[in-house]
């Protein structure tokens, strides 16, 4: 036997030498793995985003309709015009309502899944939450149009229960009502709530799974009623999950332009405004300025959440 018998013979070939080199320099491996996604995110995604945002500092000449490539805040002033500002307010209120609704509906579901669902029920829970995500978004929205339509099942249900008057009274309320649910702001809200709900449930469930049962027992042991345990222990510990979920529901609602176009009144949302201005209207600067609004809103929202200690339990 030779002296080198304690060490295996080198695996020959290019791949062998490459493996050895990467083993000796783990940093190189990380660099090679990170490079493609970094290029993708950095150049293609962030780059085009900033290119779009830069457009918002240009303006459109009112007579010729041509874009003037000069720095100006004129476009942002245009955002504050009542007709445009209404769109922003409407969208923000809708996003906040959808987020709040999703949190209220999603929390008990997530709590059940995290605390009680085991084995088969756990599988059924995941299937139930994820299944709607498997089918096309458009299919879901159009099926909701059928559900909410005047000839739809919801109307039929109210009529059958002899509660048609109640639905009609509700639809008579200005702003949130309309001719039928499918052309009302309430309809838009319901469909938003449905399509974004899984994005709220899953993060809350993940954060609740990390709360040990003894934490809740300790709270009760120290004299806290269930409502106090929820307020002082469960909610603070689940808050990072709720915030994560609300980032999804809030930003997805802020940017969506398909749901309000198919279901709801003719009053526009930010997404529709962006779509309209960058398309037929050819007003790229105003479209870009509208696109900046959700980004700013999310930044402010996260900043407030952080200030309020929402991420302290992380």
């Amino acid at each position: 036997m030779t002296e080198q018998s304690a060490i295996m013979d080198r695996q020959g070939g290019l791949m062998g030498r490459l493996s050895d080199a990467l083993w000796r320099k783990p940093g190189l491996l990380i660099f090679l793995l990170i490079l493609p996604p970094a290029l993708w995110l950095g150049i293609i995604y962030l780059g085009s985003l900033f290119a779009l945002l830069a457009q918002s500092f240009f303006s459109v000449d009112e007579f010729s309709g041509l874009i003037q490539y000069e720095f100006t805040l004129k476009t942002y002033r245009e955002l504050l015009r009542p007709s445009n500002f209404d769109i922003i307010i409407r969208t923000v209120v809708m996003a906040a309502a959808v987020t709040l609704g999703a949190a209220i509906i999603g929390f008990p579901v997530a709590y059940y899944a995290a605390r009680y669902a085991r084995g088969k029920w756990r599988a059924i829970f995941y299937l139930g939450v994820m299944l709607p995500l498997w089918s096309s978004y458009l299919v879901k929205v159009y099926s909701w149009k059928l559900i909410l339509a005047k000839e739809g099942i919801l109307n039929w249900l109210f009529e059958t229960l002899r509660l048609g008057w109640l639905l009609n009274a509700y639809l008579a309320i200005p702003v949130i009502g309309g001719n039928s649910l499918s052309v009302s702001t309430t309809g838009t809200f319901l469909v938003f709530l449905y399509v974004w709900l899984p994005f709220m449930i899953l993060p809350i469930q993940a954060s609740l799974e990390r709360v040990p049962l003894s934490m809740l027992e300790a709270s009760g042991d120290l004299g806290a009623r269930p409502a106090q345990t929820f307020r002082h222990v469960l909610l603070p510990l689940a808050l990072p999950g709720v915030i994560a979920g609300s980032i999804f529901t809030f930003s997805l609602t802020l940017g969506d332009y398909i749901v309000p176009q198919i279901i709801g009144s003719s009053r526009r949302f930010i997404g529709q405004a962006v779509y309209a201005y960058q398309g037929t209207a050819g007003n790229i600067p105003l479209a870009a300025a509208f696109a900046v609004v959700p980004i700013l809103l999310m930044a402010v929202y996260l900043w407030i959440a952080k200030r309020q200690g929402a991420f302290d339990a992380l």
Binding site: P212, S214, M215, S219, V233, L237, G309
Partner: peptide, 9 residues
């Protein structure tokens, strides 16, 4: 409690 169950927040 065995794991003390102190509230982390």
């Amino acid at each position: 409690f065995q794991d003390y169950a102190l509230f982390p927040h």
